[in-house]
């Protein structure tokens, strides 16, 4: 009973923190599920991907990957680079997630942008178990995402209006994320490198094979331009 009390208290403390995520994941998850559904995949595809990959940007990109020809190397490298930012969430959470026993493994598994931002910044209230608080934040967020993606996958087949162009939701999402990034950074060199290197590689290698060269060029350019970027920017 004691243990149930601790869990209930932690859940009650965690839930309000996740409410903004409920809206965001609700919208994006449903959009993602519908996107998969109108691309010809049954609802359990978005459901399964939401449970296993659990990373919004990559799941959207994965739809395009599934629709083009099989390219395991490009898929794996692309996934690594899209998700590379999680490395830094991990580094930031090293201390907070230490000594939390088995919960640690689920917390690390579910370390998406949203769970990271809550668990990194929220003050765990007095008398609430830290481990269970983090656990419920992570679990609630993943539940929102999986449910929304599944609902979207089911809704997709019920849609009667013309869905042509709905796939632009992915473009719009990345435009907004890129714009947010642009507005908050003090130097734009790295963002420009990303866009220009990709456009050049697209022109040289064509749309089916430009990704791997583009990623290689981006990594090289970022390495070469480290001095000016660090000097100009808010870097460290």
């Amino acid at each position: 009973m004691q243990s149930n009390g601790i869990k209930r208290k932690a859940l009650a403390a965690a839930f309000p923190h996740t409410l903004p995520i409920l809206t965001g994941f609700g919208f994006l998850g449903v959009a993602y599920g519908i996107h998969m559904s109108v691309s010809g995949f049954p609802f359990w595809y978005p459901m399964l991907m939401a449970m296993t990959i659990y990373g919004g940007s990559l799941e959207f990109v994965c739809v395009s990957m599934l629709l083009s020809s099989f390219a395991p190397l490009a898929t794996f490298l692309m996934a690594l680079l899209i998700q590379a930012r999680h490395l830094f969430y991990g580094i930031a959470m090293l201390d907070k997630y230490r000594d939390l026993g088995w919960k640690r493994f689920y917390l690390i598994f579910g370390l998406v942008d949203e769970s990271f931002s809550i668990n990194c910044s929220a003050e765990v209230p007095m008398g609430v178990d830290r481990g269970w608080f983090y656990f419920f934040v992570t679990l609630l967020n993943q539940c929102y995402w999986v449910c929304a993606a599944t609902i979207g996958g089911l809704l997709g087949s019920l849609i009667t209006f013309d869905t042509m162009g709905l796939d632009f939701v992915m473009t719009a999402m990345f435009v907004v994320i890129f714009l947010e990034q642009w507005l908050k950074e003090k130097q734009h060199l790295s963002s420009l490198i990303g866009v220009i290197a990709s456009v050049l590689c697209l022109m040289v290698f064509g749309k089916d094979s430009f990704l791997v060269p583009a990623m290689a060029v981006i990594l090289c350019m970022l390495t070469l331009c480290r001095k000016p970027i660090e000097k100009a920017g808010d870097t460290l």
């Binding site: 680079l81 473009t171 990345f174 790295s190 981006i218």
Partner: peptide, 30 residues
């Protein structure tokens, strides 16, 4: 990295990579 300092180059990539990757993803969408 448990218990060790994160290499400087990795820290730098953490700052510089997101802008470049999201730029690449916009191009990928188009």
């Amino acid at each position: 990295f448990s218990g060790k300092r994160t290499p400087r180059f990795i820290q730098y990539l953490g700052q510089a990579l997101p802008g470049a990757i999201f730029g690449m993803l916009v191009v990928y969408c188009l």
